[in-house]
């Protein structure tokens, strides 16, 4: 097998335009990762990631970088769920997300779900570097298998650093070939949707959020730093989104 898989790279830079708004001096990417500016609400910029092909497939290498410079506000979503599928090329697909939020800047990173289809093999790494005094809302949702099918193999690592200090570093490995017990009572226990919502706010340094549970399968947890993680497992994507939205509303 010689197929090398697709290389795709998208870059977004958001910069304060000096008139209270946010400009997008860099908005690069094509094919499977095309960022499009959409109508903004308020003084922030809004970008939608539009995937022109399905993917990632085995052997693909996707990379998305977003940098929000001092005082800028950016909100990024995706037009549809990302579907990991088995590919012609050998080996796992890799999807890297690198987010950089400067002092006084704000990023909302709220893509749609990642669906790990049967037979796929994907490794996702998301790293967010958040400066002191910056704000971040980051949501990741993993759906294990399309309706009624077995999940593919998925490794998802999420690292969030605030002011140079790692406040969250978590890796979930599931599906065929993942270490044993991934679907057992310590990890997922048959749940097919799992999600993380990270909120970084400077005011949490003074007044940390209170820990609370939202039922037995979701919790809002203050991290060791000015950030909270909402973690949840749910039977399906809809139930997962509902509980993550509920938690975000609780934070005010």
């Amino acid at each position: 097998m010689t197929a090398a898989g697709v290389r795709a790279h998208a870059r977004i830079v958001a910069r304060a335009d000096g008139r209270g708004g946010t400009a997008l001096p860099v908005l690069d990417g094509a094919g499977p990762l095309a960022p499009r500016r959409t109508r903004a609400s308020g003084d922030g910029a809004r970008v939608m990631l539009v995937g022109a092909m399905s993917g990632p497939l085995g052997g693909d290498r996707f990379r998305v970088e977003a940098r929000v410079e001092e005082g800028a506000r950016l909100s990024v979503g995706s037009a549809a769920a990302t579907l990991a599928l088995p590919g012609q090329a050998k080996g796992e697909a890799r999807y890297a997300v690198r987010l950089d939020v400067a002092r006084g800047a704000e990023l909302h990173w709220l893509p749609e779900q990642l669906i790990s289809a049967a037979g796929s093999d994907l490794s996702v790494t998301t790293r967010a570097e958040v400066a002191a005094g910056a704000r971040l809302v980051l949501r990741e949702e993993q759906v294990l298998g399309r309706v009624g099918e077995e999940p593919g193999r998925l490794t998802s690592r999420l690292t969030v650093r605030v002011a140079g200090r790692t406040v969250l570093d978590q890796e979930l490995r599931c599906g065929p070939g993942a270490p044993g017990g991934w679907d057992g009572p310590a990890v997922l226990a048959g749940h097919r949707s799992v999600g993380q919502l990270v909120v970084v706010r400077p005011e949490f340094a003074e007044r940390p959020a209170e820990a609370r549970t939202l039922g037995e399968c979701a919790a809002l947890m203050p991290l060791a730093g000015p950030a909270v993680l909402v973690s949840a497992v749910a039977p399906d994507a809809l139930a997962l989104r509902r509980v993550l939205d509920e938690a975000l509303a609780l934070l005010g």
Binding site: E171, L172, V187, A211, T213, C217, M221, A232
Partner: peptide, 21 residues
Amino acid sequence: AGALPAASGPLLELGAEWHAG
């Protein structure tokens, strides 16, 4: 230390929060 494994079990964390209450 950032290179250390970060393997997580969501239900271990969620169960611990539930239990603490």
